[in-house]
Every structure is written in C-alpha cells, then in structure tokens.
Amino acid sequence: MPKITYIEHSGKEHVIDAPAGQTVMEAAVKHAVPGIDADCGGACACATCHVYVDDAWLAKTGEASSMEQSMLDFANDVADNSRLSCQIKVSDALDGLVVRLPKSQH
C-alpha cells in the first residue's frame, strides 16, 4: 500500500498507509491527522483540505484543475506547490509522497 507522509505545521510527522483509489485528504481524515479539516468531505466545495506538495512530487501529483485553482486563490498562505488534497488520488506512483500542512485551514 502506498505510504504518505503528512507533516503538520508544527513539524510533527504522520506516516499513513493510504489505499490506492482514496484521496490524499481521505487517508488523512480516516487517520485523524490534525490540520486537514475537509469540511465538504471532498466535494471540492470548501478549500479546507489545503496542503503543500513536496517539490520532488509535484510532477507526479499533476496540475490543479481550473476549478481547484480558483479555490486555491482564496486559501490561506497559498504557494506554488499548494493543492487541495481531496483532488489528489492515491496511486502506487505516489508511494512515498510527502505533503506539508498549512498553519490553518480557515
């Protein structure tokens, strides 16, 4: 099963076994990783699942859709590597993915 590392803003790391097919958001929420709120449950409606994708993984996670990009425009502390984690699907190619969490989702 692919492993994903979530690094909280405080620096605390969580390494999670994430089944392929789930989203990066779902895997975090199901393991109660603090720092991803995901209020809308993955409907791409809330922008409270914001993460920073580690630079080494940017090519593999792909590009944000234009809908996602418009949401990110309004997230807190956006950066070039910002993504909505409910829009990244876990696959074997993402085994080892590292994402960092923002200070706050609201």
Binding site: A47, M67, S70, M71, D73, F74
Partner: peptide, 12 residues
C-alpha cells in the same frame, strides 16, 4: 455556479 472563486471571495 461553476465559479468557486466568486463563492470563496464573497464568503470572505
């Protein structure tokens, strides 16, 4: 409708 930026902006 299909305008998430307008939604989030207005919400703020």
């Amino acid at each position: 409708v299909n305008r998430p930026g307008e939604f989030l902006g207005a919400k703020m």
